[in-house]
């Protein structure tokens, strides 16, 4: 919290925000599973879950009850400690990453007159922090796969390593060009840079597309969902998991999807600035919702790639493109 404009941001505020993030995001992540099933169903002209509650809205509660009451099985030869810790890594890092992204514009609580910036912790290297945390989140699948003494699990964790080594470079390099333009690593600065209404995606379309591709690889979404692809490796790293541990992987994955959505909106799509007659908070909610929907849409439409194709794509196509993009951005900035 660098307090340039901000009045008091007490430890209490941060704690309240942390609890809010935990509660709201885990609820949204659970709700995301319902949305995903519904949207995928509609795209295949099915109905989707519709029996529990109106329009199947309570399916989330039913799933939660099922996950909580399911027997928690640890396989015989598994490494018990690591097996138990791995899901917590995925879920925890996903939430920690969300601690450093701003979602709404800062607002003032009426009556009390306290200014509240809508970010739990404005680290001044926010982007790198979030990316690092999401990268650390991949330790969850990696450890889970290696600890469960299962062939599918070990294949899943091998794929985790491959995927990580592939997309990481592209994510960093694709974000480097916008970082150069803005000259800061803080999300708030990114947002303020675009406050004149011109979105960064206009200047950096290539970087935006590269970031989306790498982000999908980062969250294991469909074109690159190699880690737990049912048709090839049963369930990959979650083969032996059941009950709430499995649920934590799930929540972590959906929280990561939301994080990628927020980063894409704040960095490239104009953040939480007001646009036309819409206030900023509606705009950013719409952008996040659309990028979440786009992930589901892509899942319904496109087949997934092989691990070696992902590596080929990332290292031989996307990385050179990203480097060229960075160089061109640098030249234009020097000239202009």
């Amino acid at each position: 919290m660098d307090g340039t404009m901000l009045p008091e941001v007490t430890a209490v505020g941060v704690i309240i925000k942390a609890i809010l993030i935990l509660a709201v995001i885990s609820a949204i992540a659970g709700f995301g599973t319902y949305i995903e099933r519904k949207v995928l169903a509609f795209m295949q002209r099915r109905v989707g879950p519709n029996h529990v509650g109106p329009y199947g809205l309570l399916q989330l509660a039913a799933d939660g009850i099922k996950l909580f009451t399911k027997e928690d099985i640890i396989p015989q030869h598994a490494n018990r400690l690591i097996f138990a810790v791995a899901p917590a890594i995925t879920a925890a890092t996903a939430f920690i990453a969300l601690g450093a992204v701003p979602v709404f514009p800062g607002f003032t609580i009426p009556f009390v007159d306290v200014y509240v910036p809508s970010i739990a912790s404005d680290v001044n290297v926010g982007i790198l922090f979030v990316l690092g945390m999401m990268a650390a989140g991949l330790y969850g699948p990696l450890l889970a796969g290696m600890a469960q003494s299962n062939k599918w699990g070990i294949l899943g964790s091998a794929r985790t390593a491959i995927q990580f080594l592939s997309y990481e470079v592209v994510t960093g390099l694709s974000l480097l060009a916008p970082i150069m333009m803005v000259g800061s690593l803080s999300f708030v600065d990114f947002n303020n840079y675009q406050s004149d209404g011109t979105w960064l995606v206009v200047y950096q379309p290539v970087a935006f597309i590269l970031f989306l591709i790498a982000g999908y690889a980062e969250t294991n979404r469909t074109p690159f969902d190699l880690l737990e692809h049912e048709a090839e490796i049963v369930s990959g790293y979650v083969t032996e998991y059941s009950g709430m541990r499995w649920g934590m992987f799930f929540i972590g994955e959906y929280a990561n999807m939301i994080t990628i959505g927020i980063i894409a909106s704040v960095v490239f799509l104009g953040g939480y600035n007001d646009w036309w007659i819409f206030p900023g908070w509606i705009m950013i909610l719409a952008k996040i919702a659309f990028s979440f929907f786009f992930m589901l849409w892509v899942r319904a439409a496109w087949p997934h790639v092989r691990p070696d194709q992902l590596m080929w794509l990332c290292w031989k196509v996307l990385m050179p493109l990203a480097v060229i993009n960075v160089v061109i951005t640098g030249i234009v900035m020097m000239a202009g």
Binding site: N124, F129, A158, A161, I162, L165
Partner: peptide
């Protein structure tokens, strides 16, 4: 902050490669 994050990112990647060898 910057060095901390760099430490995080770099060593996460490095240890990940180490895991691949361990595997």
């Amino acid at each position: 902050d910057f060095l901390g994050v760099v430490q995080l990112i770099v060593y996460v990647g490095a240890v990940m490669a180490l895991y691949a060898f361990a595997m």
